[in-house]
């Protein structure tokens, strides 16, 4: 009989166990185990440990959980499969090792997926982030028909060709947990692996947040303030980059990139509020992309970027 404490850490029984197992697995592969970036981002890719570190010649291996916000995906806590805030587990390996697929499959085994019982497939999925000026080729990874990860070989980031090429793995943690725990709704995921009165579900933790943020994202976020945030972030980003270019010892690629992330999130909120028309949408995406490109160019002039 396994103890309750074991279940708290069991990747097939608890959400936290799933995260901890993946962390341990990738730590053993030599990854720097980072913590989430402390800003609102739409995906783990936005973390500078992926976006910026995938540029330039320096090798890099990291993994981290990234809380991700997609305001438009909010469903007031009513849809069992969609959230406006969720977790990604992100792995970035540069250069991509020759056995990356095997490493990925072994990570699935580590969280309890039995390859003799389950059908794992690599299904074409070309990845593109218009706001980051980034694209890559790879797959959706399917487990018995469920998409549990994305697997991408970065070809371009911030408008720059990636050389060497980074391999990026993104695990959708809630999807994966639904799958390994065998439940039908994200809200039914067992978070702490305990039973009875001690059991805490994903819903216990996040239902209220989903309801409140859906309200905020769709109905009450102040659009005038958000438009101003967007402009401010854009201006600050440009200004930091200009100072950086003005002389030795003034580079601020990372703070500038933070402002790019802020502009991107303000745009996502405005988009959810429905105040950006289709034509404007393109131009906002373009403005964020220009910031991302400028930040990428600035990063390549720093030590981290291999200069």
């Amino acid at each position: 009989m396994p103890s309750a404490a074991d279940a708290s850490l069991d990747p097939a029984k608890s959400f936290q166990g799933l995260i901890l197992t993946l962390q341990e697995y990738w730590a053993r592969q030599g990854c720097v185990m980072l913590q989430p970036y402390d800003m609102e981002v739409g995906a783990g890719t936005f973390h500078p440990a992926t976006t910026l570190r995938s540029l330039g010649p320096k090798p890099w291996k990291a993994a981290y959980v990234q809380p991700s916000r997609r305001p438009k995906d909010g469903r007031y806590g009513e849809n069992p499969n969609r959230l406006q805030h969720y977790y990604q587990f992100q792995v970035i390996l540069k250069p991509s090792p020759a056995n990356l697929q095997e490493l990925y499959l072994d990570s699935l085994k580590a969280i309890g997926v039995d390859m003799a019982l389950h059908d794992v497939r690599f299904v074409e999925d070309d990845w593109e982030s218009p706001t980051l000026g980034a694209w890559g080729l790879g797959w959706e990874c399917w487990c018995d028909g469920m998409e549990v990860s994305q697997f991408t070989y970065f070809q371009q980031v911030a408008g720059f060709e990636c050389a060497p090429v980074s391999g990026e793995l993104t695990y959708g943690l809630e999807r994966l947990a639904i799958y390994v725990q065998g439940v039908d709704s994200i809200y039914d995921i067992n978070f702490n692996g305990r039973d009875g009165a001690e059991r805490v579900t994903y819903g216990d933790v996040f239902t209220q947040a989903e309801e409140e943020y859906s309200r905020y994202n769709f109905e009450y976020a102040d659009t005038a303030i958000l438009f101003q945030h967007f402009k401010d972030a854009e201006a600050e980003c440009r200004s930091l980059l200009e100072i950086g270019a003005s002389g030795e010892g003034r580079l601020m690629a990372l703070p500038a990139y933070d402002q790019c992330i802020k502009a991107s999130h303000a745009f996502n909120l405005l988009d959810a509020r429905g105040v950006i028309s289709v034509t404007e949408r393109q131009s906002y995406i373009l403005r964020v992309r220009e910031l991302a490109k400028a930040c990428g160019a600035a990063w390549l002039k720093t030590a981290g970027g291999g200069a």
Binding site: P80, H118, D119, D144, G145, Y179
Partner: peptide
């Protein structure tokens, strides 16, 4: 599927069924 599973495919069929159900409820 791409696998002769040791349980005759029961887990694979069940897993796919769950995804199909989620998609159909969408």
């Amino acid at each position: 599927s791409n696998l002769v599973a040791s349980d005759g495919g029961a887990a694979i069929a069940a897993g796919n069924g769950r995804v199909v159900r989620a998609r159909l409820s969408d």
